[in-house]
Write a protein that binds this DNA or RNA. Structure first.
Length: 786
DNA sequence: CCTTCGGTCGTTTTT
DNA sequence: CGACCGAAGG
C-alpha cells in the first residue's frame, strides 16, 4: 500500500473529486499567507512545518484538518495530537466552527495512549480497567516497592530512582535493556528495581504516566497486525509541538506512518522546553533525515507581537549555539518598548506589578484578562497571591493548588479507583484508614504479608481476613467491614459518576468526618469534595457514556493549563512552561535572575542553559503588545533572603532598544541600572504619563524603532554567557560565578595579580567573601563587559 | 492505635 | 518556609 509522495494532489480519485464547496475553501484560505496556504493544502506525503512563535501555527493545523475533510478524507482517518487537553479542546472547537459536527479525534499523546491501551492492552497483559497512577501515586507505589525488597532508607532516594525509570521508559528502554547498559552504582540499583516495579505495577493493573507512551510504542512494535491496522486507520496524522516529542512518542508516530505517510508535524526548535522530560529536539531537527521526501515549509512571519518584542526575542535566542540560524519577522508596528524593571525585593516586585496592572485597567487601556504574569518556578506565585488579594485585583493561578491534587480530593478519588479496580493496592492503603477505622500501620503490614501469601490484592485479603492468623479482634472486624463497604460501593457502579461520589462521601463516613471536625480547614475541604461531585456531574453531562472510568481518566490526564479559564476577566499567573502556546496582550516575567532564569540546576550543562534561554524566549514571545521583564535585588527564597543577580539573559537583549527602570531606590550597586529618573512607582512610569527622557523618545505607537538602530539582525557572533573555565585573566567586576561551596555570586571587586589575585564576591546565600582567584573552586558563568 | 510535636529534609519545569 | 517523617505521649 506504499504510496510514493507526489508532492501534492491526491492519488485517490475519491479524494480528488471536485470539492463540495469552492467558496468554503476560499474562505478557509482567505486570511492565510502563501506559506500557510501551502501547508494547509499540502496533499499526501510527509510535511514539516517550522512555525516560529506567533506565526499562526494552530490556525494552520485547524484549517488543514478542515481542508482535509472538505477534500473527502473521512474524519475517522484523521488523528490530531496536541500538547495539552486544553489545546485539544480548543482545536476541536475551532475545527467545529469550520466543519460543524466533525468527528475527528483530537487529543494528547497520553490520551491517545490510553485509548490504544484500553483497546489493545490485553495483548500486553493489561486489563481494560487499568488504573493510571499520577506522580503522587507513583511515588507512593515506588516507596512500597522499595519497602517490599527491604530497600527503604538506603543509598538512593526514591524520586531519583523514579526519575531514572521514567527516563528509561521515555527512551523506550526495557528493564532488560536497561540492565545491560547499567554500569555505575546507581544505574545498577535502578536496574534491579525497574523490572520489579513494572511487574508489581502490572499486578495492580496499573500504569504510570510514562507507560501511556511506552506501552503503546511496544504494542505497535511487537504486534505487526495491530500496527498495520492502526496505520491503515489513521491515514492523516497531525502533530503539534513536535519539538517536544520524546523517543517513545516518536516511535508511535513512526509506526503509524509507514503505509500511509501523510504525517504532518508542526513545531519550532526554539520553543523546545521539555528536554528534562525526555523530549528530544532531534526529532524535529532530523525529520528531514527520517522522511527524506518531506516537504518543508517555514513560517517565520509573526503576527502576534510588536516589533519591539520580536526584536528583543530575536536578540536573545541568537545566543543559542546549538541552533539553526533563523529569525522571526513581523510587519507589526514597533509599539511600546520592552521594559526591564529592577525592584528592591520580591515583595516590592509583586506589589508594583499588581498595582501597575490595576492602574492600566483603570485607565481603560487593557482588561485584567489581557494580562499574564509568568514565573520560572511555582513557589514564586505565593507572593503574588497576597499582592492580588491586597489590591483587590482578580487573578487565577494556573495550577496554584491543583484541584485534583488536594488531599481530600485524592482521598475520594482513591475510593473511586478502588471501587473500579480492586487490585489497586495504593488506593487501598491510602484510604483504608481514612476516616480512621482503627486500622493502623501494623495491621496493614500484616495484611500485606497475608495478601502476599495468598497472592492476591489487599482488598481481597481483607475479605478473607478471618483466615488470617496474625490479624484478630477489632482490627480484623474493621477490615471486614471495610471490605463490605467497598463491596457495597461496587454495587453502585452502574450509576453516573457524580452519584457514586455522593454515595462514597456518605457511606464511607468521609463527609461526616469533615462535617464534625473543628479544624476550620476542614470546611474548605468539605466544599472541595462537594465540588468534586459537581465536576463529575459536568463530566457526565458532557460524556454520558464515559461513566466512572471515563471521569477518572479525565482527572488523571488533566494538565496544568486545563483548569485555566481564558474567558474570565482575571490576570493569569503561571509558570513559563504552562505559558507555551498561549498569548496575552501584556506579559510580565518575574524574577528574571541568575539561578532562577536560568535556573541554578541548568548551569552545569551548556545544553540545559540553552533550554533555559528557549524558555525565556517562549515567555517573551507570548506577549502581543507589552513585555515587562522584572528582577529584584533581594529575593526571599526557602525562608532565607538572598542577594539576587539580574539574569545574564537580560544582557543579551538589544541594550539600546530596551528600557531599563530601576525602582529599587538604590543606584549604588546595580550594574544594570541605566536610564531614567528613579520614579518611585511603576505606575508613575507608565508611558502615557511619564517625563522620562527615554520614554519621551519612545515611539509609543509609531512603526519605527528608536533612531540609529536597526530592528533586525541581532549580533549572533559572540556568546558572553557560555560557561567558561576558571583561571583566566579576564575576570572582571560584574562577572557572575558559581562557587563549589557558596553557589552563585557576583564579583564586586578584583585586586592583585598572578597567584595573589583576589576577588571579592557577593554570594546569593553566603554574603560577601574574598577569594584567591587561582585557588578558589569556581567557574565563570557570565562575564560582564561593562 | 491515634495525635502531635519536633526535627530534618530538600525544593524546576509536567503529561 | 513548608512538606514530610519519625519518635514520643495520650
Amino acid at each position: 500500500m506504499f504510496q510514493a509522495h507526489t508532492g501534492g494532489g491526491f492519488t485517490n480519485p475519491a479524494m480528488a473529486q471536485r470539492s463540495r464547496d469552492d467558496a468554503f475553501i476560499g474562505e478557509l484560505l482567505a486570511d492565510l499567507n502563501e506559506e500557510q496556504q501551502k501547508a494547509v493544502t499540502h496533499g499526501e506525503g510527509p510535511l514539516l512545518v517550522l512555525a516560529g512563535a506567533g506565526s499562526g501555527k494552530t490556525r494552520v493545523i485547524t484549517r488543514r484538518i478542515a481542508w482535509l475533510l472538505t477534500q473527502g478524507v473521512p474524519a475517522e482517518q484523521l488523528l490530531a495530537i496536541t500538547f495539552t487537553n486544553k489545546a485539544a479542546q480548543e482545536m476541536r472547537q475551532r475545527v467545529d466552527r469550520l466543519v460543524p459536527g466533525h468527528r475527528v479525534w483530537i487529543g494528547t499523546f497520553h490520551s491517545f495512549g490510553v485509548r490504544l491501551l484500553r483497546q489493545y492492552g490485553e495483548r500486553l497483559g493489561l486489563s481494560s480497567t487499568f488504573t493510571i497512577y499520577d506522580a503522587d501515586d507513583r511515588q507512593a507505589f515506588l516507596k512500597a516497592t522499595l519497602d517490599a525488597v527491604g530497600w527503604d532508607n538506603c543509598r538512593f532516594r526514591p524520586d531519583q530512582i523514579g526519575a531514572a525509570i521514567s527516563k528509561a521508559k521515555n527512551q523506550l528502554r526495557s528493564p532488560e535493556e536497561y540492565a545491560r547498559s547499567a554500569t555505575d552504582f546507581f544505574s545498577q540499583a535502578v536496574a534491579q528495581v525497574y523490572p520489579l516495579y513494572d511487574r508489581r505495577l502490572r499486578q495492580m493493573q496499573a500504569v504510570d504516566f510514562d507507560d501511556l507512551l511506552y506501552l503503546p510504542a511496544l504494542l505497535l512494535r511487537e504486534h505487526p497486525d495491530v500496527r498495520t491496522l492502526l496505520d491503515n486507520r489513521y491515514r492523516y496524522i497531525l502533530i503539534d509541538e513536535y519539538q517536544d516529542t520524546n523517543v517513545a512518542q516518536y516511535e508511535i508516530i513512526r509506526h503509524l506512518s509507514q503505509d500511509y505517510r501523510n504525517l504532518c508535524v508542526v513545531g519550532d526548535p526554539d520553543q523546545s522546553i521539555y528536554r528534562w522530560r525526555g523530549s528530544d529536539i532531534r526529532n524535529i531537527l532530523d525529520f528531514e533525515r527520517d522522511f527524506p521526501d518531506a516537504r518543508v515549509i517555514h513560517l517565520p512571519r509573526n503576527y502576534r507581537s510588536t516589533r519591539a518584542i520580536i526584536t528583543a526575542a530575536n536578540h536573545l535566542i541568537a545566543h543559542n549555539r546549538q541552533r539553526k540560524k533563523k529569525e522571526l519577522r513581523t510587519d507589526n508596528e514597533w509599539g511600546e518598548p520592552v521594559r526591564v524593571w529592577t525592584f528592591r525585593d520580591g515583595l516590592e516586585e509583586a506589589d508594583q506589578v499588581v498595582r501597575r496592572i490595576k492602574a492600566t485597567v483603570e485607565a481603560g487601556r487593557f482588561r485584567y484578562r489581557d494580562h499574564a504574569i509568568f514565573v520560572r518556578i511555582n513557589a514564586l506565585t505565593r507572593v503574588l497571591e497576597s499582592a492580588f488579594v491586597r489590591h483587590g485585583v482578580p487573578f487565577q493561578i494556573v495550577k496554584g493548588f491543583a484541584f485534583y491534587e488536594r488531599k481530600e480530593n485524592k482521598d475520594v478519588l482513591a475510593y473511586l479507583r478502588l471501587v473500579l479496580n480492586p487490585a489497586d493496592d495504593i488506593a487501598f492503603e491510602r484510604i483504608v484508614n481514612v476516616p480512621t477505622r482503627g486500622i493502623g500501620d501494623a495491621t496493614v503490614e500484616r495484611l500485606r504479608e497475608f495478601a502476599a501469601t495468598l497472592g492476591c490484592s489487599l482488598l481481597a485479603a481483607a475479605g478473607q481476613v478471618g483466615q488470617c492468623t496474625t490479624i484478630k479482634g477489632a482490627a480484623a472486624r474493621a477490615l471486614s467491614s471495610f471490605y463490605r463497604l467497598l463491596a457495597e460501593l461496587r454495587s453502585y457502579l452502574h450509576l453516573p459518576p457524580h452519584e457514586i461520589i455522593d454515595l462514597v462521601l456518605q457511606r464511607s463516613g468521609y463527609e461526616d468526618m469533615l462535617k464534625s471536625s473543628n479544624d476550620p480547614d476542614d470546611q474548605e475541604r468539605l466544599a472541595n469534595v462537594q465540588e468534586l461531585v459537581t465536576a463529575a456531574r459536568q463530566y457526565h453531562e458532557m460524556n454520558p457514556q464515559g461513566g466512572l472510568a471515563g471521569f477518572l481518566e479525565q482527572v488523571a490526564l488533566a494538565s496544568e493549563v486545563d483548569g485555566w479559564d481564558h474567558e474570565a476577566d482575571r490576570v493569569s499567573v503561571m509558570t513559563l512552561h504552562a505559558s507555551k502556546g498561549l498569548e496575552f496582550p501584556v506579559v510580565y516575567m518575574l524574577a528574571v535572575e541568575e539561578g532562577l532564569l536560568p535556573h541554578e540546576r541548568s548551569l552545569h550543562d551548556p545544553a540545559e542553559l540553552e533550554e533555559e534561554r528557549r524558555l525565556c524566549f517562549v515567555g517573551m514571545t507570548r506577549a502581543m503588545r507589552e513585555l515587562h521583564l522584572c528582577h529584584a535585588q533581594l529575593r526571599e527564597y526557602r525562608g532565607k533572603i538572598l542577594y539576587a543577580i539580574p539574569s545574564g539573559f537580560l544582557d543579551e537583549l538589544p541594550r539600546d532598544q530596551v528600557e531599563w527602570h530601576d525602582l529599587s531606590g538604590d543606584q549604588s550597586r546595580t550594574p544594570t541600572a541605566s536610564s531614567g529618573e528613579h520614579t518611585s512607582t511603576m505606575v508613575g512610569a507608565a508611558p502615557v504619563e511619564t517625563s522620562d527622557k527615554n520614554l519621551a523618545r519612545t515611539h509609543g505607537s509609531s512603526s519605527t524603532p528608536p533612531p540609529g538602530l536597526s530592528a533586525s539582525a541581532p549580533a549572533s557572533t559572540q556568546s558572553n554567557s557560555s560557561v567558561s573555565s576558571n583561571g583566566s585573566d579576564d575576570l572582571a567586576v560584574g562577572a557572575i560565578i558559581q562557587h563549589q561551596h557558596f553557589g552563585i555570586g557576583q564579583v564586586v571587586a578584583v585586586s592583585g595579580y598572578g597567584t595573589l589575585k583576589r576577588m571579592k564576591v557577593r554570594f546569593a546565600s553566603h554574603g560577601e567573601k574574598t577569594l584567591l582567584v587561582a585557588e578558589a573552586p569556581f567557574r565563570i558563568i557570565t562575564r560582564r563587559p561593562r
